[in-house]
C-alpha cells in the first residue's frame, strides 16, 4: 500500500498543511510519498524530504504548475497514480480546484474534507455544515481524499526521504493564468494561527476592523471574518471563516459582532477555546462560546486592548 500526498507550497516554501496531510496518510498504513508540483521548487522538495515518515519526494517542475492550474495538476497526479493506492491533499482552494478532476479521471468517488482516518478505506467527514459526521467506506480501488488539516497534528521533522524529478507530461492546456491579487499581511495564516480574531457585520465598516488590529498585534493573531463582513466589502474574501470559507481550529477564537450562524460555526467550532463579544445576549454564538461578553463592541474592544496592555501584552 502506498499513499501519495500532494504538497501545499508557494514554490518557495513548504506549508505546514503538508505535514498534517502526511499524518492523515500515515494513519492509512503503508508508504507515504510526497508530490511537489510547482515551478522552481528545489527548496520545497528538500523541505518535504525532511518530514518524518516520508519514503520519497517527487518533484515535478513546469511553468503550468507555478499556479497549480487545475488541468495541469490533474495530468501530473493522474500520471503518477499507477504507483499508488491513494492520493491525499489538503482541502484548501488550490487542491479543491483539481482533486475532483483527478477522481473523475480515475473513475473514483472523492472523499472530501476528512477529519478522521479509520483505516485505509474508511474515513470520517463532516456533512451539513458539520452538524453531522459521516463515516464512509470507499469501495473504489484507489482513494482520492482531501483532508481538513485542522483535524490532524503536523508530522514532525527528522526524515530523510529520497528525492527524484519526474517529467510533468503536460502539453497544451485550455486554461491559462492571468493575474493574482493577494491580500498582503504580516500576520500568521488564518488556518495555521494559534489565535484568530474575527469580525462580523456588527463591526459596521472595514475601517472599524482597526479596533481588532491592536488586539491581533498583541496576541499574534490572524484576522478572520463572517460572510456578512466579507459580502459588505469590509474585508477581503479570503478572510471568510465557515462552511464555505476556511475552517480554523486555533487555541483561541475570538468572535466579535458575529451572530453565530450555522455556516459560521461550521468553520470555527473545533477551536479549543471560543470567546465572543456581542451586544445581543441571545446571539447563537454564545451557545458555543466558553467566554461570552455581552457588550457593545465599540466600548468593549478598546477596553479589551487596554486590559491586555495592563496584563503585559
Amino acid at each position: 500500500m502506498a499513499v501519495l500526498v500532494v504538497a501545499e507550497h508557494n514554490n518557495a516554501e513548504l506549508k505546514d498543511a503538508t505535514h498534517k496531510v502526511v499524518t492523515a496518510a500515515s494513519q492509512m498504513g503503508g508508504d507515504v510519498d510526497i508530490l511537489v508540483a510547482g515551478k522552481g521548487i528545489k527548496d520545497v522538495v528538500a523541505a518535504a524530504a525532511k518530514i518524518d515518515g516520508v519514503r520519497a519526494v517527487i518533484g515535478v517542475d513546469h511553468d503550468s504548475l507555478e499556479r497549480q492550474l487545475a488541468e495541469a495538476m490533474q495530468i501530473v497526479v493522474v500520471n503518477l497514480m499507477d504507483g499508488y493506492d491513494a492520493v491525499l491533499s489538503p482541502d484548501t482552494t488550490s487542491h479543491k480546484n483539481y482533486m475532483p478532476r483527478v477522481a473523475a479521471k480515475l473513475d473514483v468517488q472523492q472523499i472530501s474534507s476528512v477529519t478522521g482516518v479509520e483505516s485505509a478505506d474508511t474515513f470520517i467527514r463532516p456533512i451539513y455544515a458539520g452538524n453531522a459526521m459521516a463515516t464512509v467506506q470507499s469501495t473504489d480501488s484507489k482513494k482520492v481524499v482531501t483532508v481538513r488539516t485542522t483535524a490532524f497534528a503536523a508530522a514532525g521533522e527528522g526524515g530523510s526521504a529520497s528525492t527524484s524529478d519526474v517529467d510533468a507530461g503536460v502539453g497544451a492546456l485550455k486554461s491559462e493564468y492571468i493575474s493574482e491579487e493577494l491580500s498582503k499581511s504580516d500576520r500568521p495564516e488564518l488556518t495555521a494561527a494559534k489565535v484568530v480574531i474575527s469580525g462580523g457585520r456588527g463591526m459596521g465598516s472595514g475601517e472599524n476592523f482597526k479596533l481588532l488590529e491592536g488586539i491581533a498585534d498583541k496576541l499574534g493573531a490572524a484576522m478572520g471574518a463572517s460572510r456578512a463582513a466579507v459580502d459588505a466589502g469590509f474585508v477581503p474574501n479570503d478572510w471568510q471563516v465557515g462552511q464555505t470559507g476556511k475552517a480554523v481550529a486555533p487555541q483561541l477564537y475570538i468572535a466579535v459582532g458575529i451572530s453565530g450562524a450555522i455556516q459560521h460555526l461550521a468553520g470555527m467550532k473545533d477551536s479549543k477555546v471560543i470567546a465572543a463579544i456581542n451586544k445581543d445576549e441571545d446571539a447563537p454564538i454564545f451557545t458555543v462560546a466558553d467566554y461570552g461578553l455581552v457588550a457593545d463592541l465599540f466600548k468593549a474592544l478598546p477596553e479589551f486592548e487596554a486590559e491586555l496592555t495592563k496584563a503585559g501584552y
Partner: peptide, 19 residues
C-alpha cells in the same frame, strides 16, 4: 462507491460562562 457506515452527531460544545 461509498458505503455510509454511520452518521453521528458531532462532539457537542457546552456553552460556557458570561464574563
Amino acid at each position: 462507491r461509498l458505503k455510509t457506515l454511520k452518521v453521528t452527531e458531532p462532539a457537542a460544545r457546552e456553552a460556557g460562562i458570561k464574563v
